[in-house]
Computed example of a mutant assay.
Amino acid sequence: MTFSTHHWPSKVANILVYLTLVSGNLYSTFIGGEDQDSPYHSKHQSYITPAAFTFYIWTLIHVLLGGMVIYQWFNDKVHKAVGWHFVIVSIINAIWLALWTAGHTFLAFVTLIFATGAVSFIYYRLKEQHAADTVAEVLFLHLPFSLYHAWIFVLLVINAFAVFSSAEGEPSTFQAVLAIVGLVFVASTVIGYIEYKKGDVAGALVLSWYLFGVFAQQKDAAIHWTSLGLGIAVAVYTLKPFVTSFFGRQSGETAPLLG
């Protein structure tokens, strides 16, 4: 790899917004005042809110994105695939985090819709136009946005339930059914990651991780056990690309697992 200063304005901008994104999450989690609401320990609980540890997937995403902002100086494919869009994503994400920590859940939800669209743009661009050719491209270009795309979708669902429902004691039958419908909706998107996104195992595992987090957090029996069953089902379903790849090799064909 050769160090390159081509497109340096966008590369510098990526570093700046990355640092802002990380510092914003750290501040809201460890330093913010009692009147603020951290995504990790949210006061806006619903019946599909996962356990606090689930949100630490942000740590993995941040580490991989940190690798990307370093890797971009050695591979111009990062600029071609991501360009200035990561700057847009990070700014919208920072606005969402500020609104969420301030308790403006509806405005946060609207902002998160735009953030989801921005991340999806990068994600689909990587899938359709910039397939990974090396392990480094998988780790520092495709993997972070696979995780980011799945996780921001999960956040969108969590945020939606935080706006329109709240967890106060035992859920009613209607609330429990609504929560289960939400969980099934999240789990069903695994079909898109495995069947239509070239076997995106990483994105599918994020969904499973979230469902296990709901299992750990929610005590209502119907929600508790449904989330466990769905989490196991999603985790098992992620094995399909590996099985397909194995039998594909036996027949002389191969299938990509991440992009």
Rank of each mutant, 00 (worst) to 15 (best):
T5M: 15
W8R: 12
P9G: 05
K11M: 08
I15H: 09
L16V: 12
L16I: 11
L16D: 01
Y18M: 06
L19I: 08
V22R: 08
N25E: 06
I31S: 01
I31T: 05
G32S: 15
D35A: 14
D35C: 06
D35R: 14
Q36C: 02
Q36G: 02
D37H: 15
S38H: 04
K43E: 14
K43Q: 15
K43Y: 14
K43W: 14
S46T: 01
I48S: 09
A52V: 00
T54H: 13
T54K: 14
F55C: 12
T59K: 06
L60K: 00
L60Y: 02
I61L: 14
H62V: 09
V63H: 12
L64I: 08
L64P: 05
G66I: 10
G67M: 03
M68H: 01
M68R: 00
M68P: 00
M68L: 02
V69W: 04
V69Q: 05
I70D: 13
F74M: 11
N75M: 13
D76C: 00
V78K: 02
H79P: 00
H79E: 08
W84E: 00
W84H: 03
W84M: 01
F86T: 04
F86K: 03
F86Y: 10
V87F: 13
S90H: 06
I91M: 04
I92P: 15
I92M: 15
N93E: 07
A94T: 12
I95C: 10
I95D: 03
W96P: 13
W96C: 13
W96D: 11
L97F: 06
W100H: 13
T101L: 07
F106V: 10
F109M: 12
T111N: 12
L112W: 07
A115P: 03
G117A: 09
G117I: 07
S120A: 10
S120R: 01
Y123H: 15
Y124W: 04
Y124R: 04
Y124Q: 02
R125V: 07
L126H: 06
K127C: 00
A131H: 15
A131V: 13
A132M: 08
A132S: 13
V135S: 00
V138R: 13
F145R: 08
H149E: 01
A150N: 01
A150S: 08
L156D: 12
I158E: 15
S165E: 10
P171G: 08
Q175A: 15
Q175V: 10
V177C: 05
L178F: 06
V181T: 01
G182S: 02
L183W: 15
V186D: 03
A187M: 02
T189S: 15
V190R: 11
V190M: 15
I191K: 09
G192V: 04
E195N: 14
K197S: 09
D200W: 12
D200K: 12
D200L: 14
D200R: 12
V201R: 11
V201E: 09
A202I: 08
V206T: 03
W209G: 02
Y210I: 05
G213V: 09
Q218H: 00
Q218M: 01
K219S: 08
K219E: 12
D220F: 06
A222T: 07
T226L: 05
G229L: 05
G229H: 04
L230T: 05
G231L: 02
A235Q: 03
V236R: 03
K240A: 14
P241R: 05
F246C: 09
G248K: 00
R249W: 11
Q250V: 09
G252I: 07
T254P: 00
T254S: 10
A255E: 11
P256T: 04
G259M: 10
